[in-house]
Design a binder for these strands. Structure first.
Lengths: 140, 140
DNA sequence: AAACAAAAATAGAATAATTCTAAAAATGGA
DNA sequence: TCCATTTTTAGAATTATTCTATTTTTGTTT
């Protein structure tokens, strides 16, 4: 019936995470919202539908998901951690003017040559500048 | 006489920053400590030699330096902002085991093709994994 | 040198994201 | 049903950073 919920469940189980209601809700949120939300945003949006949800659970779940490699932790902003369920190769761009965080697709992520003995588990590239919309408002 | 202090002063003035004692101290610290320190570390190390130094001044100075493009803000760690006075192209590697943050030299930094209209001011690449030393302790 | 304005530094309070703690609830056998 | 384990929960605690209001420093004009 509900294919999405099944995908969510499978994705959790595939990584050895027991699919509780709360974990499914957080995971489903991330899979359906490609907005790189903060923990706070996720909590604020889920809370009305799950009045017993605790902020600690959202943090616990996100930490677990990141640990198990189910979602990406994005540290492009100094203040807030942001999360991304899309694991396809892409990088993140932050607009200094409007604050938006955009995905930029790349064929494969760049991993520079590392010194002998170093092993790389993951790598992230962050670009910062001005988005097309903000740029267009600057010209006259 | 003291070539270092002159270099520090010049580098600040070049970016339109008035070289006060405190700013010089922070800038010199960053130029002589390639450890990607946190604001806290800088304060802790400078304080014994400058007992009137305030933590707010360290934060103010670091923010100013980053704004003016004199130093790099590194967000490779979730908790603490880290700072780097080296502006030559290089990327950062964090060891998940020992926490060290290492520089990795690259010829030029990768900036992926951006969507039409987007302008990029800066980009950072972070790699996370295990450093050579930690890896060597794992094998048996 | 005195007076003044502007810039910078300071101490400590305030803020806010995240983690911790201890208790309650849910889950899954035996 | 009983029990052990896992998960969730609320709120307190922690902590990096920013804010506020005051003081100090700096530079300029007389």
């Amino acid at each position: 019936m509900d294919g999405l919920k099944n995908m969510v469940k499978e994705r959790l189980e595939l990584h050895g995470i027991k699919p509780s209601m709360q974990r499914m809700a957080v995971m489903e949120y991330l899979m359906t919202h490609r907005t790189h939300p903060t923990a706070e945003m996720i909590f604020a949006d889920l809370y009305p539908h799950m009045p017993t949800l605790s902020k600690a659970t959202v943090y616990n779940t996100l930490n677990l998901l990141v640990e198990r490699g189910v979602v990406r932790l994005i540290t492009i902003e100094e203040k807030n951690a942001r999360f991304d369920a899309c694991m396809d190769p892409h990088i993140h761009f932050r607009c200094r003017d409007c604050g938006a965080i955009l995905d930029v697709d790349v064929e494969a992520h760049w991993v520079p040559a590392m010194p002998e003995g170093v092993t790389v588990e993951m790598s992230e590239t962050y670009c910062i500048g001005s988005c097309a919309e903000c740029n267009s408002q600057k010209v006259n």
